Structure formats: structure tokens, C-alpha cells
Lab assay of single mutants.
Amino acid sequence: QLRFETNGEEQAKKVLEEAKKHNLEAHVTIENGKWVVHVK
């Protein structure tokens, strides 16, 4: 499982879109005010 700390909602959405293009499972959590994308 990969973990990407992003700078906010915009970047998190871009990472999610990329993951979906590659048929990867991804979800976002907010940790300590940071948007974190988890990709399987």
C-alpha cells in the first residue's frame, strides 16, 4: 500500500484520478490537516 501526502484537496483529487486510470484502489484520509491518498 502506497501513501501520498498531498498539499490539499486539489492535489489529492489528481492523485485519485491517476490511480483510477491505472485501475488501482485508492482512498483519501485527512491526517493532521493533510490530505493523504492511500493506494493499493
Results as ranks from 00 to 15, higher is better:
His27Cys: 10
Arg3Trp: 08
Lys34Arg: 10
Val36Gly: 01
Glu10Val: 08
Glu31Lys: 04
Asn7Phe: 12
Lys14Arg: 12
Glu5His: 05
His22Leu: 14
Gly33His: 04
Leu24Pro: 03
Glu5Lys: 01
Glu18Gln: 13
Lys21Val: 07
His22Ile: 05
Gln11Met: 11
Arg3Phe: 06
His38Gly: 01
Leu2Met: 13
Glu10Pro: 04
Leu2Val: 11
Glu31Tyr: 03
Lys34Val: 14
Val36Asp: 00
His22Phe: 10
Gln11Asp: 14
Glu10Gln: 09
Asn7Glu: 14
Gly33Met: 02
Val36Tyr: 08
Asn32Val: 01
Lys21Leu: 12
Glu17Ile: 09
Thr6Leu: 14
Glu18Val: 13
Glu25Ser: 11
Asn23Thr: 03
Leu2Gln: 09
His27Phe: 15
Ala19Pro: 00
Ala19His: 03
Lys14Thr: 09
Phe4Gln: 03
Asn23Asp: 07
His22Thr: 04
Gln1Asn: 14
Gln11Leu: 07
Leu16Trp: 08
Glu18Tyr: 15
Ile30Lys: 09
Gly33Phe: 01
Leu2Trp: 15
Ala19Val: 10
Val28Tyr: 06
Gln1Cys: 14
Ile30Met: 12
Asn7Ala: 14
Val37His: 00
Gln11Phe: 08
Thr29Gly: 03
Lys21Arg: 12
Asn32Pro: 00
Val28Ser: 04
Leu2Tyr: 13
Gln11Ala: 14
Leu24Trp: 13
Glu25Ala: 11
Val36Ile: 14
Gly8Ser: 15
His22Tyr: 13
Lys14Asn: 08
Glu5Val: 11
Lys20Phe: 12
Val37Glu: 02
Ile30Ser: 05
Gln1Thr: 15
Glu5Ala: 02
Leu24Phe: 11
Glu9Trp: 15
Thr29Leu: 08
Ala19Ser: 04
Ala26Trp: 05
Val39Trp: 04
Lys40Trp: 15
Leu16Gln: 06
Gly33Leu: 02
Lys40Leu: 14
Trp35Thr: 03
Asn23Gln: 09
Arg3Lys: 09
His27Ala: 07
Val15Leu: 15
Arg3Gln: 05
Thr29Asp: 04
His22Glu: 06
Val28Phe: 06
Asn7Trp: 12
Val39Leu: 10
Glu31His: 06
Phe4Met: 03
Thr29Pro: 00
Glu10Ala: 12
Asn7Arg: 10
Trp35Ile: 06
Trp35Met: 03
Glu17Ser: 10
Ala26Lys: 00
Ala12Tyr: 04
Val37Leu: 01
Asn23Ser: 09
Lys34Met: 14
Ile30Glu: 07
Ala26Gln: 01
Phe4Trp: 08
Gly8Glu: 13
Asn7Val: 11
Glu18Leu: 15
Arg3Thr: 10
Lys14Val: 12
Glu5Leu: 04
Gly8Trp: 11
Glu17Trp: 08
Asn23Val: 02
Glu10Ile: 07
Val28Asp: 01
Ala19Phe: 13
Glu9Asn: 04
Lys21Trp: 07
Gly8Phe: 13
Val28Asn: 00
His38Asn: 10
Asn23Phe: 11
Lys20Met: 12
Asn7Thr: 13
His27Met: 10
Lys34Tyr: 09
Trp35Gln: 01
Ala26Leu: 03
Gly33Glu: 05
Asn7Asp: 15
Gln1Leu: 14
Lys34Ile: 14
Gly8Val: 12
Leu2Arg: 05
Arg3Leu: 08
Lys20Asp: 05
Glu31Met: 06
Val15Met: 14
Ala12Pro: 00
Glu17Ala: 13
Phe4Val: 12
Ala19Trp: 08
Ala19Gly: 02
Asn23Gly: 15
Thr6Phe: 15
Ile30Tyr: 14
Lys40Gly: 14
Thr29Glu: 10
Gln11Trp: 11
His27Thr: 13
Lys20Glu: 09
Lys14Pro: 03
Gln11Arg: 03
Glu9Ser: 07
Lys20Leu: 14
Val15Cys: 06
Lys40Ile: 15
Lys34Gly: 04
Gln1His: 14
Lys21Tyr: 08
His22Trp: 13
Glu31Ser: 05
Leu2Asp: 06
Asn23Cys: 07
Thr29Cys: 10
Gln11Glu: 15
Val36Ser: 01
Lys21Glu: 07
Asn32Ile: 00
Leu16Lys: 03
Ala19Asn: 01
Ile30Gln: 10
Glu25Arg: 07
Leu2Pro: 02
Phe4Thr: 04
Val37Pro: 01
His38Ala: 04
Ala19Arg: 01
Gly8Tyr: 13
Lys13Arg: 12
Leu16Tyr: 10
Ile30Asp: 02
Glu10Thr: 09
Val37Tyr: 00
Val36Arg: 00
His27Val: 13
Leu2Phe: 13
Glu18Pro: 00
Val39Thr: 03
Leu24Gln: 07
Glu17Val: 07
Ala26Tyr: 06
Glu10Tyr: 08
Glu17Asp: 12
Glu31Arg: 04
Glu10Phe: 07
Gly8Asn: 15
Gly33Ile: 00
Val39Asp: 03
Lys21Ile: 07
Thr6Ala: 12
Glu10Met: 09
Gln11Tyr: 09
Glu9Lys: 08
Glu17His: 08
Gly8Gln: 11
Asn23Ile: 02
His27Ile: 12
Ala12His: 01
Asn7Tyr: 12
Glu17Gly: 06
Thr6Ile: 09
Ile30Gly: 02
Lys14Asp: 06
Ala26Phe: 05
Val37Ile: 07
Ala26Asp: 00
Val37Ala: 02
Glu5Gln: 05
Glu5Ser: 02
His22Ser: 07
Trp35Val: 04
Phe4Tyr: 13
Asn32Lys: 06
Val28His: 02
Ala26Met: 03
Glu31Ile: 07
Leu2Ala: 06
Trp35Glu: 02
Glu17Phe: 08
Ala12Lys: 01
Thr29Gln: 08
Lys34Gln: 10
Thr29Ala: 09
Lys40Asn: 14
His27Tyr: 15
Ile30Pro: 01
Gln11Asn: 07
Gly8Arg: 10
Leu2Thr: 11
Leu16Val: 13
Trp35Leu: 04
Asn23Ala: 09
Glu9Phe: 13
Glu9Leu: 11
Glu18Thr: 11
Asn32Thr: 02
Glu31Asn: 04
Val36Met: 03
Trp35Gly: 01
Asn23Glu: 06
Glu17Gln: 11
Val15Asn: 02
Val15Ser: 02
Gly33Asp: 07
Lys20Ser: 10
Lys20Gly: 07
Glu25Asn: 10
Val28Trp: 03
Glu18Trp: 15
Glu5Phe: 06
Val36Asn: 01
Gly33Arg: 00
Val28Leu: 12
Ala19Ile: 12
Lys21Phe: 09
Lys21Met: 10
Glu18Phe: 15
Val37Trp: 00
Glu9Asp: 05
Lys20Tyr: 12
Lys14Trp: 14
Val15Tyr: 14
Lys13Asn: 14
Leu2Ile: 13
Ala12Leu: 07
Glu17Pro: 00
Ala19Met: 13
Ala19Asp: 00
His38Ile: 15
Leu24Gly: 03
Lys20Thr: 09
Lys13Glu: 09
Lys13Gly: 07
Gly8Cys: 10
Arg3Gly: 04
Asn7Gly: 11
Gln11Ile: 08
Lys21Thr: 07
Glu25Gln: 12
Lys14Ile: 13
Lys14Leu: 13
Ala12Arg: 00
Leu24Tyr: 10
Lys21Gln: 10
Phe4Glu: 03
Val28Ile: 15
Lys34Glu: 04
Glu18Ser: 12
Glu25Trp: 08
Leu16Thr: 04
Asn23Tyr: 09
Gly8Pro: 02
Trp35Tyr: 09
Ala12Asp: 01
Trp35Asn: 02
Glu18Ala: 14
Lys34Pro: 00
Leu24Lys: 07
Val39Met: 06
Lys40Met: 15
Glu18Lys: 10
Lys14His: 12
Gln1Met: 15
Glu31Thr: 05
Ile30Cys: 07
Lys13His: 12
Ala12Asn: 01
Glu25Tyr: 10
Trp35Phe: 09
Glu25Asp: 12
Ala19Gln: 03
Glu10Asp: 11
Lys14Met: 12
Gln1Pro: 14
Gln11Thr: 09
Gln1Tyr: 15
Leu16Phe: 09
Lys14Phe: 11
Val28Gln: 03
Glu25Phe: 10
Val39Glu: 01
Lys40Phe: 15
Val15Glu: 03
Val39Ser: 00
Glu25His: 11
Glu18Asn: 12
Ala12Met: 06
Ile30Arg: 08
Lys14Glu: 11
Gln11Val: 07
His38Glu: 07
Ile30Ala: 04
Leu2His: 11
Ala12Phe: 03
Asn23Met: 08
Leu16Ser: 03
Glu5Asp: 05
Asn23Trp: 08
Ala12Trp: 03
Arg3Tyr: 07
Ile30Val: 13
Ala12Ile: 04
Lys34Trp: 08
Ile30Asn: 08
